[in-house]
């Protein structure tokens, strides 16, 4: 799923002059509730509340003394500052107040989307282009210096860490992944050996996972046409996908949604060509 590019409203929980501090328990519960809904939040005692990177509008909430909600203006006039008094409110009412101030403006919210994309550790990356050759979804590309980079985050298949499995240097991370070193844990020698083994497993499968899948799909297609038994063909495909999913830790949904064998062949060729070109240029 594609992420919204809209910036979430920043909320400032103001406890400086003219406002009473919330009690500790309420402060942490309100803050957690705002964060869990996707809002960036600042707990502020004193000092400037507008930052140079604020966008469009800012919401300042606080338990303002005697209910005197201040009218605030950005000195540079770039940011609209809204203020809301939250005296006596619990976290549910605070959230309602903030949502109302947002007034339906777009933003990502937890639960609606998962930020899943590869992050390259350039301290480890050797620019070998295996990831570019491997990925069928055009996630990778090269910059003007022919250096590998992640170019299309949104093309990445949620929960699929397959490219990190083929990286010989363990340089590709998915911070939301459960285990190390793919999640960003330090890489040790045994990880390097294990990762090498995974590449070997991939080779044993017949070059790479995708070519293996292509062969199996073609086999299944052939059997389907001969046997005219759709249940059997689907069963075979499921069996094949289950095996590949387990070996590569690739979600079944990703394998099941791969392009057709013909499209895969074209993609593999294109990606390989791109990688070769980039490698040739970077060597000059």
């Amino acid at each position: 799923m594609t992420a919204s590019q809209a910036y979430p409203l920043r909320v400032v929980l103001y406890e400086g002059e003219g406002a009473l501090p919330l009690d500790q328990g309420t402060r942490s519960v309100v803050l957690a509730a705002l964060l869990d809904k996707g809002y960036a939040t600042t707990v502020a005692g004193k000092g400037a509340i507008v930052r140079d990177n604020d966008v469009e509008r800012l919401l300042v909430i606080g338990s303002f003394t005697a209910g005197n909600t201040p009218g605030l203006k950005d000195a540079e006039g770039k940011i609209e500052i809204l203020t809301r008094d939250i005296t006596g409110m619990d976290e549910v009412r605070v959230l309602e107040t903030v949502e109302s101030a947002r007034n339906g403006r777009a933003m990502n919210q937890p639960g609606s989307w998962k930020p899943w994309f590869p992050v390259i550790d350039y301290d480890r990356c050797t620019n070998c282009m295996q990831c570019l050759s491997f990925c069928l979804f055009d996630v990778y590309g090269v910059d003007s210096d022919d250096k590998i980079q992640v170019q299309n985050n949104d093309n990445c298949k949620t929960n699929c860490p397959a490219c990190s499995r083929v990286c010989p240097e363990v340089a590709i991370m998915f911070p939301k992944y459960s285990g190390g070193p793919i999640n960003g844990e330090p890489v040790n020698n045994s990880d390097l050996e294990r990762e090498k083994m995974k590449v070997d497993i991939s080779s044993l499968l017949g070059g790479d996972i995708y070519s293996r899948l292509r062969e199996r799909s073609e086999g299944a297609k052939s059997r389907f046409s001969k046997e005219r038994d759709s249940d059997k063909a689907l069963g075979e495909r499921k069996k094949c996908l289950t095996k590949l999913a387990a070996q590569g830790d690739i979600p079944m949904e990703v394998l099941a949604s791969l392009p057709s064998p013909e499209e895969i062949a074209i993609k593999v060729e294109e990606a390989g060509r791109k990688a070769k070109e980039a490698l040739a240029k970077s060597k000059h």
Binding site: A3, S4, Q5, Y7, P8, P21, L31, L35, D36, K37, G38, Y39, A40, T41, T42, V43, A44, G45, K46, G47, N108, P110, W113, P115, F117, V119, N153, P175, K176
Partner: peptide, 17 residues
């Protein structure tokens, strides 16, 4: 602690955007 601080919903989500 009484300190001022910033809190974000998710750094990965911010990096993606």
């Amino acid at each position: 602690s009484g300190r001022s601080f910033d809190a974000v919903s998710d750094l990965c989500e911010m990096s993606a955007r």
